[in-house]
């Protein structure tokens, strides 16, 4: 009986040595790739946000940006970016928000001024809206630039014509829902993080 078992065990080793060897080999290859590339990948991910900061907050310098962790009103902790100019003076904030669009989630960045009274820029990071209609939310001329002059209070409203320069966003023709989801997401993100950021300054 024991002989038999031993035989069987020996048999398993002869059967599986190749798989075990390959697993070890591949494991070390993966570890090598991970160690070699993870910094670069992290950098790429960060850069996606950081490269937009100068566009969202005028005069901001990418390298001077500081990350702050705050707890939003919804109880979740989030990272906000404090944009600074060349002298290191805080000149605004960049917040990250996401919300449901017409087709899929929309992720965006909002730049606001240091007193948290007006928006200085908006940039859509990720979207899958309908090409030719909803995806114009990524177009600076058609849509994004109009956010730069808006006031935070009262919240933004989407209209189809003659927008008020301070509180109203002109919807993209044929994509009112996409436009509304963007402005709603902006409103929600600011409402969620405004008080925590003010507390941070105190």
């Amino acid at each position: 009986m024991t002989m038999n078992q031993q035989l069987k065990q020996g048999n398993y080793i002869t059967q599986a040595w190749l798989v075990i060897l390959l697993a070890l080999l591949y494991g070390s290859a993966l570890a090598g790739v991970h160690v070699g590339l993870s910094d670069r990948i992290e950098h790429n991910k960060r850069n996606e946000i950081y490269s937009q900061i100068p566009n969202l907050v005028p005069d901001a310098v990418q390298e001077k940006t500081q990350e702050k962790t705050v707890q939003g009103l919804d109880g979740k902790t989030t990272i906000v970016y404090q944009a600074c100019d060349a002298k290191g003076q805080c000149i605004g904030w960049v917040l990250r928000g996401s919300g449901q669009g017409f087709a899929d989630r929309i992720e965006l960045l909002v730049g606001i001024d240091p007193t948290l009274s007006s928006i200085t820029g908006m940039y859509v990071l990720d979207q899958k809206e309908t090409p030719g209609l909803g995806n114009y939310i990524t177009d600076p001329e058609r849509f994004q630039n109009q956010f730069a002059t808006k006031k935070i209070d009262p919240p933004l409203v989407v209209v189809k014509s003659d927008p008020d320069p301070q509180h109203e966003i002109l919807a993209i023709t044929g994509a009112t829902i996409s436009s509304e989801s963007v402005s709603d997401t902006v409103n929600k993100t600011i409402a969620n993080l405004k008080q925590p950021i003010l507390d941070l300054n105190r």
Partner: peptide, 21 residues
């Protein structure tokens, strides 16, 4: 099993390279 292990490993490596470069 060996085929799958090999393919999955190389796909992971390719994926990381794409993400990095």
């Amino acid at each position: 099993l060996v085929f799958t292990l090999t393919i999955a490993t190389f796909v992971t490596i390719t994926d990381r390279f794409l993400a990095a470069y």
